[in-house]
Amino acid sequence: MQLRYGITIGLCTCYQALWITSWCVSVPNSLVIQLRLNDVLTAAATNLPITSTKQLSADEEEDKDEEDVIDEALGLVPSDLPSTAYVVVPSANPGGVLCLTPQHVHVRDTLRVAFELVREHILAENAFPDTVDRHQFVTSSILRAAQTRGYNGLAGWFASNPDVLRLLAPIVNQRICSLRSDLKKASDNLVVGFFKIVPGEETKQLVKWFLQHLNYSYPVEPMQANVPRNKPYQHPSIAAIIATVFFKGRKPHAKKHASVFKSTSPDRPEEKEIPLTMVALVSTAIHSSLMDWSQGTHHPTNFTADKYLDAYTEHVLNLEQIKARNPRGYHKTMHGLYTMAGGSTPPRPANMDANVAMVDYDNMEVD
């Protein structure tokens, strides 16, 4: 079956499954992406020929994203397919990273869930895992995602074909890099204004001062004589970057991963906090953005573990010490970041014993 772009499609109508073969390797991925998965599957289910892709209005196209397309397609594909229904569509470039778009819809849905499992781990557990740990966690997350979604045939296929997991893992790893990239971009944009950086020789000394003793994590003005050391991680840039990257947008991370925002105060469980790992990661991004200005002019660097693991580790250790030595101060700081970033806190319940004591139970009206 030929499409107008010359892409060869294979359809297994008995399972309504879809795969796009790599025979037409000269076709760029950008054209493959134009295929609306739900249109192809609908045609497969009704045995109709596929002659074109659906044209959406500008508003519809803006509102529809990859997740919407996958959700629509899943309604046409049974979840209990056998392991033999799945294949990997190789990259058009030999040795290149697989393209997600032409993979089976179950694989795409599984990777979507795996993205969130890995992202939650990055934000709440360890933002800079080493290469071995990251690979093991990514591959186990893919397998767990398939099991969670009820794709037993796919999970069995993964378990018996570890090479498939190895091929799919870089797609998930790309999303980790994308998260860091988004964070660094937000930091780069906000740091200049918050820290009053302008190109010139004076900026060298300014950046050096901010980096000294992690001064940039305190609520200070440039070159301030007395740094309020009792207010670590309260520089407004930290909450601003958290808000920009994690609390804003059509589908914010904070909404998807609401469970990571927990209180460490047993007396105030309703007062949610930003996780330690997230604060350390954001602070490291600020460190990276300042380093880009260390020569007086802007020289961007990659926000990678190889370059900034030491800074991240320093923030983690610092936050752990604050939490251990002053739990109440730690809670107030992290809860303050949560509320400033855009999280809401329900009103604290009144003293229940006092309220109960005020009720006149004996003289209540009865029928």
Rank of each mutant, 00 (worst) to 15 (best):
M1I: 03
M1V: 04
Q2V: 07
G6Y: 08
L11I: 08
C12A: 11
T13S: 07
S22F: 01
S22R: 09
S26N: 05
Q34S: 12
L35E: 03
L35N: 02
N38H: 11
N38Y: 06
N38P: 01
D39V: 15
V40S: 08
A43M: 00
T46R: 11
P49M: 02
L56Y: 09
S57H: 06
E67F: 07
D68C: 10
E72Q: 11
A73K: 03
G75K: 14
L76Q: 13
T84F: 02
V88G: 01
C99N: 15
C99H: 12
Q103C: 05
H104Y: 07
T110H: 07
R112V: 02
R112W: 04
A114M: 02
A114E: 00
L117H: 00
V118D: 01
A124T: 07
F128L: 12
R134F: 09
Q136E: 11
V138K: 05
T139R: 07
T139E: 06
I142N: 04
T148D: 05
A159R: 12
P162C: 10
L165H: 09
L165A: 06
P170Y: 04
V172M: 00
Q174D: 11
Q174M: 14
S178E: 14
L179M: 14
L179S: 12
D182P: 02
K185E: 13
S187F: 07
S187L: 04
G193L: 08
F195G: 05
F195T: 08
K196H: 12
I197A: 00
P199L: 05
E202H: 15
W209R: 07
Q212L: 11
Q212R: 15
Q212S: 14
H213K: 15
N215A: 15
E221T: 14
A225F: 05
N226S: 12
V227Q: 13
V227E: 11
Y233N: 12
I242R: 04
T244R: 15
T244C: 12
F246H: 13
H253I: 11
A254E: 13
V260Q: 15
F261E: 13
K262P: 07
S263Q: 13
P266F: 15
L276M: 15
T277S: 14
A280Q: 12
L281N: 04
S283L: 07
S294D: 10
G296S: 00
T304C: 04
A305H: 09
A305S: 14
D306T: 09
K307F: 05
Y308Q: 00
Y312R: 06
L317R: 15
N318D: 09
E320I: 01
Q321V: 06
I322G: 00
K323C: 01
R325P: 00
R328Y: 05
K332A: 10
L337K: 05
L337C: 03
G342Q: 06
G343L: 04
G343Y: 09
P349E: 04
Y361E: 08
D362K: 13
N363V: 08
M364I: 08
V366R: 07
